[in-house]
Amino acid sequence: MASRHTVVFLVAVAISLSDFIHSFQPLFSPDGNSTTHRDITLRAVLRKTAEVCRDMAASEGRDFRLTIDDSLSTDKVQRACSTTGTSTSLLSTVLFQTSIANMYFSNAKVDVVFALSEKHHFDDETFQGGRDVITAGVAAVKASVKLESFVAGRWNLGQDFYSHSNWVELGNKSPYSTLISPDQPLENLAGLSVPTCRNCTGGKCENNLLPDLLQQGLLTSGTSTSSLQQNLQ
Rank of each mutant, 00 (worst) to 15 (best):
L179D: 03
H164R: 11
L214E: 09
T6S: 14
R154G: 06
S18M: 01
L46Y: 01
D63Y: 02
Y176T: 10
V8M: 10
Q78V: 07
T126H: 08
P182D: 10
I134P: 03
L90R: 10
V94A: 14
N208S: 12
S181W: 06
I15Q: 01
T178V: 13
I21T: 04
L10S: 11
T223N: 09
G130Q: 05
C53N: 00
A80E: 00
R65T: 06
G222C: 11
S221L: 06
Q97N: 09
L213I: 15
S193E: 12
S16W: 02
T98W: 02
S82C: 03
T67C: 02
R62Q: 10
F64D: 02
D75G: 01
L192G: 08
D111T: 09
D75A: 00
Q128F: 14
T67Y: 00
S23R: 14
G222Y: 09
H120M: 08
V194P: 05
R62H: 07
F9A: 05
Y162T: 05
N33T: 14
D31V: 15
T84Y: 04
C197G: 10
P182Q: 08
R4N: 11
V113H: 13
A44T: 01
L91K: 12
S3R: 12
S92I: 09
H22G: 14
G61K: 07
L186D: 06
G222E: 15
I134K: 03
F161V: 05
Q184T: 11
G217L: 11
S82E: 02
T201A: 08
D75P: 00
S165T: 15
L179A: 09
F24G: 14
S106Y: 02
T35V: 12
R47C: 03
G129Q: 05
D31P: 09
G153E: 02
T49F: 02
F96R: 03
A136C: 08
F122G: 03
N172G: 09
H164P: 02
G61D: 04
L17H: 13
T98F: 07
R62T: 01
R54V: 03
F127G: 01
F105C: 14
S149L: 11
E125H: 15
C81M: 01
L66N: 00
Q215M: 15
L90A: 13
D111H: 10
I134E: 01
A143K: 12
L213D: 06
G61F: 06
T135P: 04
V141H: 01
G129A: 06
S193C: 08
V45S: 03
V113L: 11
S3M: 13
L66F: 00
N208V: 07
D111A: 09
N156A: 11
S177H: 11
T49I: 03
A44I: 03
V145G: 09
P211F: 08
D63P: 05
I134L: 05
S34E: 11
H120Q: 09
T86N: 12
D39N: 11
N172A: 12
H121Y: 05
D212Q: 12
R47Y: 02
I180T: 12
R38Q: 14
P211R: 14
S73Y: 03
N199K: 15
K146S: 12
V13M: 02
S92Q: 14
S181C: 10
